[in-house]
């Protein structure tokens, strides 16, 4: 397992895995993200960008959730070699 410095989901390259570290979104959306599985410690796969470049689809707990850059740039983690499962 290689760890590197933390980066936002918006900056992560497609196809990579990110272990979440912190979420700086506030309010209702923060709670919604938590409910969807964007919890610290969880591993997220960066799937693919929309044809127009935004939003981006993420794989979390075997579900695909699309987030806009406004949100994904506030979710931080570090690269993980692959899904731990």
């Amino acid at each position: 397992m290689t760890t590197s410095s933390s980066l936002s989901l918006a900056d992560a390259s497609t196809g990579s895995y990110i272990r979440l570290e912190r979420i700086e979104v506030q309010g209702v959306l923060r709670r919604r993200l938590l409910d969807l599985g964007f919890v610290p410690g969880n591993v997220i796969e960066v799937m693919q960008k929309s044809p127009l470049g935004d939003p981006t689809a993420f794989r979390v707990n075997n579900t695909t959730i699309a987030l806009r850059i406004e949100e994904s740039s506030l979710i931080f983690g570090y690269y993980e070699e692959s899904d731990e499962r």
């Binding site: 409910d35 969807l36 599985g37 979390v60 707990n61 075997n62 579900t63």
Partner: peptide, 9 residues
């Protein structure tokens, strides 16, 4: 059944 982790929540 295909995404139990989130559903169990």
């Amino acid at each position: 059944a295909t995404s139990l982790e989130r559903n169990l929540n």
